[in-house]
């Protein structure tokens, strides 16, 4: 796991869901739920400790057509940030 990376100052997270400890495809499903429920333009984040998420979550964001704002490696988990575009 790389060193923790800080989220850029200009990225303000509107809603964050903690899916640490949940297994594939749990974190992705949590993210999908939160994206669905949020208004367009919201910046949303999901925390995942599941190694599958590293590829799965960006792949879903791309497929769904939202903006992937980054994956920030923390200690033992990753924070994925997405902007809902539609």
């Amino acid at each position: 796991m790389p060193d923790p990376i800080a989220i850029p100052d200009d990225v303000k997270i509107d809603r964050e869901v903690d899916a640490r400890g949940s297994f594939c495809p749990g974190p992705l499903m949590e993210l999908i739920r939160v994206v669905r429920a949020a208004p367009v333009g919201s910046v949303l984040a999901v925390l995942s400790s599941d190694p599958g998420s590293a590829k799965d979550i960006p792949a879903w964001i791309q497929k769904a057509g939202h903006d992937f704002l980054g994956a920030y490696a923390m200690e033992g988990y990753i924070r994925f940030v997405v902007r809902k575009t539609h």
């Binding site: 594939c24 992705l28 499903m29 799965d56 879903w60």
Partner: peptide, 11 residues
């Protein structure tokens, strides 16, 4: 069931 969730998530 896991394949189903993956496929459903990917549209």
């Amino acid at each position: 069931s896991i394949l189903t969730t993956g496929a459903a998530a990917m549209g």
